Amino acid sequence: TEEFVRLWREAVRHNQTLHWNGTDFIPGDEWAEEFARREEEKL
């Protein structure tokens, strides 16, 4: 979602874990980066 992408970019900028829907998205984590890339492509 647009909100997820916005929060993810913020988390990456501050190198912080994003807690989203009970899942931890960690900047630099391969799975999280791939998920975020797919979400961005949907926008």
Score class of each variant (00 low, 15 high):
residue 11 A to N: 00
residue 35 F to R: 06
residue 28 G to W: 02
residue 28 G to V: 00
residue 2 E to P: 09
residue 20 W to H: 03
residue 38 R to Y: 10
residue 30 E to F: 11
residue 1 T to F: 11
residue 40 E to F: 13
residue 18 L to W: 00
residue 27 P to R: 01
residue 39 E to A: 15
residue 20 W to Y: 12
residue 29 D to I: 06
residue 29 D to S: 09
residue 42 K to G: 04
residue 42 K to Q: 07
residue 6 R to T: 08
residue 6 R to F: 12
residue 43 L to A: 07
residue 8 W to G: 05
residue 27 P to S: 01
residue 10 E to H: 04
residue 35 F to P: 02
residue 19 H to V: 09
residue 34 E to A: 13
residue 41 E to T: 11
residue 42 K to P: 02
residue 4 F to W: 08
residue 5 V to S: 05
residue 13 R to N: 10
residue 31 W to A: 10
residue 1 T to E: 09
residue 40 E to P: 04
residue 6 R to N: 12
residue 21 N to L: 12
residue 19 H to N: 12
residue 12 V to A: 04
residue 15 N to T: 06
residue 22 G to D: 09
residue 29 D to A: 06
residue 28 G to Y: 02
residue 11 A to I: 01
residue 14 H to M: 15
residue 39 E to R: 07
residue 12 V to S: 05
residue 3 E to W: 07
residue 25 F to I: 03
residue 16 Q to A: 12
residue 36 A to E: 02
residue 28 G to E: 02
residue 14 H to S: 15
residue 41 E to F: 09
residue 39 E to Y: 14
residue 28 G to K: 03
residue 28 G to I: 01
residue 30 E to Y: 11
residue 29 D to L: 06
residue 21 N to S: 08
residue 14 H to V: 13
residue 23 T to G: 06
residue 29 D to K: 03
residue 35 F to I: 10
residue 14 H to W: 10
residue 8 W to Q: 06
residue 7 L to H: 09
residue 8 W to Y: 02
residue 12 V to W: 03
residue 3 E to Y: 06
residue 17 T to W: 07
residue 36 A to D: 01
residue 34 E to T: 06
residue 3 E to C: 15
residue 14 H to N: 15
residue 29 D to V: 10
residue 6 R to L: 11
residue 6 R to E: 12
residue 30 E to S: 13
residue 21 N to I: 05
residue 39 E to Q: 15
residue 17 T to I: 15
residue 43 L to Q: 06
residue 27 P to E: 00
residue 15 N to Q: 11
residue 39 E to G: 05
residue 25 F to T: 01
residue 23 T to R: 15
residue 7 L to N: 08
residue 36 A to M: 09
residue 33 E to Y: 03
residue 5 V to N: 10
residue 8 W to N: 03
residue 24 D to A: 09
residue 19 H to F: 08
residue 25 F to N: 00
residue 37 R to A: 10
residue 8 W to M: 05
residue 12 V to T: 05
residue 26 I to N: 11
residue 42 K to I: 07
